[in-house]
């Protein structure tokens, strides 16, 4: 009796479980390669790992040493400078381009892809191009001299105090078009009638944008901020290609710090600790954002 029933039962049960079975490889990979690895790296950050992973617990020693390192402070301060300028400038350029592009501009279809194409490039390509463009020997400085502006000087990339700003320039070039696209999508979603009404009431263009349009773009601002902040914290390739962290160590960021301490300076424990701090700062930005986004959908 039982055995004859088992056949259809098994098949329906299989049907019931099939979705979960199909999903399971991805979920398994996620738990191992993402969350398992995160736990493992956190664990390593509490051990005395050097060239190879070691499992001897040393408590928070790595974190204490990390925050005592000049190089780490340089990286953190650089990230602060880089991230704030990068976010502010990208947002300003992106917003201006979007608002201007939204004024029934002839050739919008041609301009938009021009603003956005850098986003399709690798940061290594961007870094290579700007490295030579900003090079005093062959780049802009040389060009200006040849064009007759003899006193023109632009050698930030060779200057310890200014090199971090060259990273901002290249990064803004790469992503500001993308921010433009985000704002443009936001602008196109705004109800036109409201603007017409305000205009009839005699509001000036400036006030119209300041009082009505820009506040309505709040979601786009939030998205832009989150995306840019997380890109800034993860910035690695651009530094490698553009400045190599130099001159000296003047443009190290946490991402390059982590790499060099872990893989070339044989301080895996400290490298792991710095990665944990990077993760925590990204989590602090992303988690509330993703949580809110997922909630809204229901």
């Amino acid at each position: 009796m039982a055995t004859t029933r088992a056949q259809p039962d098994f098949r329906t049960r299989l049907q019931d479980w099939l979705p979960r079975i199909v999903l399971s490889p991805s979920i398994a990979m996620m738990f191992v390669f993402v969350y398992g690895f995160i736990v493992f790296t956190i664990y390593l950050s509490f051990t005395d790992s050097r060239m190879l992973p070691s499992y001897d617990w040393v408590g928070i020693e790595n974190y204490v040493r990390l925050w005592g390192l000049r190089a780490w402070w340089t990286a953190v301060i650089n990230l602060g400078i880089f991230a704030s300028l990068y976010i502010v400038i990208c947002t300003a350029i992106g917003l201006s381009l979007a608002i201007f592009l939204d004024q029934k501009i002839r050739g919008e279809g041609l301009l938009r892809p021009i603003y956005l194409y850098p986003m399709a490039l690798s940061f290594i390509v961007t870094g290579t191009a700007w490295k030579w463009i900003m090079d005093p020997g062959i780049g802009i400085e040389n060009t200006m001299h040849l064009w007759g502006w003899e006193s023109f000087e632009f050698r930030w990339i060779k200057d310890r105090d200014m090199a971090i700003y060259t990273v901002v320039i290249a990064a803004v070039w790469q992503t500001s078009g993308f921010v433009m696209a985000m704002f443009l999508a936001g602008l196109r979603g705004i109800d036109n009638e409201m603007l017409k009404a305000a205009q009839i009431d005699g509001a000036s263009n400036w006030n119209l944008y300041r009082r009505i349009v820009i506040p309505l773009l709040r979601p786009a601002f939030l998205s832009a901020f989150v995306i840019l902040a997380h890109l800034a914290i993860k910035s690695y390739d651009l530094i490698v290609a553009l400045t190599g962290g130099g001159p000296g160590r003047a443009t190290e960021l946490p991402a390059t710090f982590m790499y060099s301490y872990t893989f070339t300076r044989n301080s895996m424990g400290i490298g792991a600790a710095s990665a944990v701090i990077m993760l925590m700062s990204i989590a602090a930005i992303m988690t509330p954002y993703l949580y809110a986004e997922l909630r809204e959908k229901k």
Partner: peptide
């Protein structure tokens, strides 16, 4: 939806956190 949330968060992690175990 919890699984999806976890999957979504994994898009944004700094990959430095997985380099060593990987």
């Amino acid at each position: 939806s919890i699984l999806f949330g976890l999957l979504l968060f994994s898009c944004f992690i700094p990959f430095q956190i997985v380099l060593i175990p990987m």
